[in-house]
Design a protein around this nucleic acid. Structure first.
Length: 118
RNA sequence: CGAGUAAGCCAGACAGUCGCGUGUACAGGGCGAAAGCCCGUCCACGAGGAAAGUCCGGGCUCCACAGGGCAAGGAUAACGGGUAACGCCCGCCGAAGGCGACUUCAGGAAAAGUGCAACAGAGAUAUACCGCCUCUUGGCAAUUGCCAAGGGGUAAGGGUGGAAAAGUGGGGUAAGAGCCCACUGGCCGGCUGGGAACAGUCCGGUCCUGUAAACUCUAUUCGGAGCAACACCGUGGGAGGACAUGAAGGUUGGCCCGACCGUCCUCAGGAGGUGGCUUGAGCCCGGCGGCAACGCCGGGCCUAGACAGAUGACUGUCCAAUACAGAACCCGGCUUAUAGGUUUGCUCGUCCG
RNA sequence: CCGGGUGUGGCGCAGUUGGUAGCGUGCUUGACUGGGGGUCAAGAGGCCGCAGGUUCAAGUCCUGUCACUCGGA
C-alpha cells in the first residue's frame, strides 16, 4: 500500500458514511468520498454479526488483499470505506474480488476506464 | 483379531512469487544546527492446545487501614502431601457403578436447636379409626356365650406411602410391646493396628425416619478496584498569586474609524502522545530424591508485543481429513469446543502354540 | 476488563416458603343471528433454553453450558 494510509478515527468514518457516495452488493458495501490530500485512505469495517474473530480476520485480510491488487489503477485522493456484510463469511476470494471490481466500475473510480481488471 | 479402559503426542508439510508487523545492521537517500525522524535494502523472528468462557488462585499498580479483636456477608469441607497460592494436582480411605481394567462422588455435624415431609393413609415424629384383650352397666340365653353403651390397656394384624418406630426367631403376657434373650445392621465410647482418614470373627452402651445443594452449628479462609489500573509529557481553555496600568505593541484591514488581545510563576488536568510491554513461580536436556504430584543440582536457550490492531492471495507436489478456533498486562489451574492421525500400559472374549 | 438481567402454549407475560403449570390474546368446534361482527360454552396446543446433580418429588435448589440483552471504567 504505497499511496494509502488507513482511516482511524470514528468521526472520519461517520463523515464518509454521511457525505459519501455508496454502492452495495449482497456481499459488501463501499462508501467513497473525495479528500484534499494527495493520497487515498482506506477503512475496512467488519461487524460482529459477520462471525467470530477468526472469520472477521479472514474477511478483513481478503478485502485488504483485493484493494492492494487494484490499488495502482484506482484514482487517488479518495476516502474509501469497505463494509463487509453477513454473507461475506461464506464467499470465496474470487467472488469478493468480482464484486469489488464491479463497484469500482459503478463509482467510476478507475484511473482509466476499463483498466485494472485482473 | 475384536471389544473396552487409562495416559500422552501432533494440530497439514515442502518449494516459488507478491504483500504485512517488530527488531538489528547499513560508508544508502531525504529533512534537520544537533539529538533524531521518514524512506529504502539485507537478515532474524512472528498466535493456541485450548489464545475461548472469564469460573477460581496469584504477581503487578493505585486507594483504604497502617496494632489487634468482634460482628455482618461470601467461599471451601473425609485424611496425608505438593505448591507462590488455590475451590487445583497427587496419593490414600469410604460409598456407588462395572465380570474386569477402571470410573464417579459439595464425602464435616441430624446425639445443640428450629423448620419441612404435598397427595394417599387410622396415623408423618407422633397417632387409637378398624381390630385384639379386659372391666362396669343393661338386655337375651341360662356355667365360659351373644348384642348394645361407656371406661381402660395395647402397638402384634390392617388398601397407603420414599419413609410406619432397626430386622428375624424364641420366651413372656389377659392381649401385647427391645419388656427379656440369641443372631444381624446402624450409631456412641473403649481396646488393638495404622502417620491420619479408617479398619476389626474384640468389649461395653442404645437417645436408631429422611432432609443441612432448608435455617443453623463447627473448622479454615477472604480489605476494595482493576493495564481503559497506574506513572510521565502535555496545545487550547480554567483557578490562584506577582508585575504592569490605559502608553507602547500585535491580529483583522489597501488606509482611517471600529473590534479583539497583557507578561511571568504555581495548581488540577478533558483531546493527544510516551512508558507500563514482556527475562519469567520461563523453556529444553541430563542426574539425584520421592509410589506420585513435585523438589534439588548442573548445562544450554531467548521464543509475538500490536493500539482501526500484523499470518493473506496465487501456483506446484504429497494428500484429499483440514476440525475447533486469533495473543491484547503476565502466570498457575478449571470448564467448554475439536476433523483426523499416532504411541504406550492394562482388562475382557475367541483362536493358535 | 468488571458487573447485572432474561429465557415458560403461536405472541405478550404470572408462577410466593420445593408438592398435579396458569392468565390475556390468537386457533379449532358448537350455539345465539338470514350472514358477518360480537357474546356464550367446550377443546387443542408445554421435555418450563440445554445437560448433569441433591431430594420421595425440581419451573422453583445447586453446578456447568448456550443464546439474547443492559450498565460501568
Amino acid at each position: 500500500m504505497i499511496c494509502t494510509t488507513s482511516i482511524k478515527q470514528n468521526y472520519e468514518f461517520r463523515r464518509v458514511y454521511n457525505n459519501g457516495k455508496s454502492v452495495a452488493t449482497g456481499l459488501i458495501a463501499v462508501y467513497c468520498r473525495k479528500n484534499r490530500r494527495g493520497m487515498s485512505r482506506l477503512g475496512i469495517t467488519v461487524g460482529t454479526k459477520v462471525g467470530k474473530a477468526v472469520v472477521r480476520n479472514k474477511v478483513r485480510r481478503r478485502l485488504r488483499e483485493i484493494y492492494r491488487h487494484c490499488e495502482s489503477s484506482i484514482r487517488r485522493g479518495q476516502d474509501i470505506v469497505i463494509v463487509a456484510r453477513v454473507k461475506s463469511r461464506y464467499a470465496a476470494y474470487s467472488e469478493l474480488e468480482r464484486d469489488f471490481c464491479r463497484m469500482m466500475d459503478k463509482l467510476g473510480l478507475w484511473e482509466i476506464s476499463g483498466a485494472g481488471k485482473p
